[in-house]
């Protein structure tokens, strides 16, 4: 069982209740919210007149979790990708690598942290409650539930409202699938949603390289030692032949014959 969030852009009225609830539960400063940044884990952006609630996609196989050198970002069984700030050393590889450009950094702090939605894992979801954002949505544009059930809800809406939605559940396959999924009546690429070259999850790209390391180390080590041994022996033989060294000096033992 893995949780997710379904956001239906056809129902979002842009009231920003989700944004304010997020700020309250996570103790973020209540500033004017225009886009995701170090103070906003979710934001309602207006693109071409469409209200789009942005937040972490909570990928099934998250890029940020893969790149973090100290495992400060982790994917929980329940679905949320959480951030263990006491591990983070501030390399910002997650900010650089995230295909959805979600994690943000506290650039103006002397002791900065990474900022992103954790699906209220600590406060609510791990206690069996729903996240603050979905709990306050007045139109049901953003709802919380089991990810598979949400997929069924999405397909149901396709069936019940023929012609209304674009035939694409954003997040079903993107980056290998995400816990947060979107429905829209406008093609996603016109709304600034990332279009990926491939639907495969990203971590495999680097793991294919990293998993070669044991081979490189063992084969490389043996090869280099072998090369040294052969060349060194030849040099010594050469010296013995030229009378610069005795066999005993060169090889440690006196040969027979």
């Amino acid at each position: 069982m893995s949780y997710g969030i379904l956001t239906d852009l056809t129902r979002c009225i842009g009231c920003k209740a989700c944004v304010m609830a997020c700020k309250e539960i996570n103790g973020l400063p209540k500033t004017e919210v225009l886009k995701l940044d170090g103070n906003n884990w979710t934001a309602v952006e207006q693109v071409n007149g469409v209200n789009i609630r942005r937040q972490c996609m909570h990928c099934d196989d998250p890029t940020c979790v893969s790149v973090c050198p100290v495992a400060a970002l982790q994917k929980t069984e329940a679905g949320p990708v959480i951030y263990l700030e006491e591990r983070c050393m501030g390399c910002r590889y997650c900010v650089m690598a995230c295909p959805f450009e979600i994690p943000k950094y506290q650039w103006n702090e002397t002791l900065p942290r990474v900022q992103k939605c954790i699906m209220c894992y600590d406060n609510l979801v791990s206690k069996g409650e729903q996240p603050a954002c979905t709990s306050v949505c007045p139109t049901g544009a953003t709802i919380f539930g089991d990810r598979e059930e949400l997929m069924d809800v999405a397909r149901e809406r396709f069936k019940n409202n023929p012609g209304l939605y674009v035939d694409h559940i954003y997040g079903e396959h993107e980056a290998g699938g995400t816990s947060v999924i979107y429905l829209s009546d406008v093609p996603f690429e016109q709304l600034g949603f990332k279009v990926m070259k491939s639907d495969a999850a990203y971590p495999k790209l680097t793991w294919d390289v990293l998993s070669q390391i044991p081979n490189i180390v063992s084969v490389g080590g043996v090869t280099m030692f072998g090369i040294w041994w052969i060349i060194n022996r030849r040099v010594k033989l050469e010296k013995v032949r030229n009378g610069e060294m005795t066999e005993e000096e060169a090889f440690g033992i006196a040969k027979d014959e």
């Binding site: 893969s66 100290v70 983070c88 950094y105 002791l111």
Partner: peptide, 22 residues
């Protein structure tokens, strides 16, 4: 690094899937 005094963290907090860890 944002928190340079934690530069040693990768040595004890492992994530072998991370290129930067390696």
């Amino acid at each position: 690094l944002g928190l340079p005094f934690r530069i040693w963290h990768p040595l004890i907090m492992w994530n072998p899937h991370s290129v930067m860890f390696e």
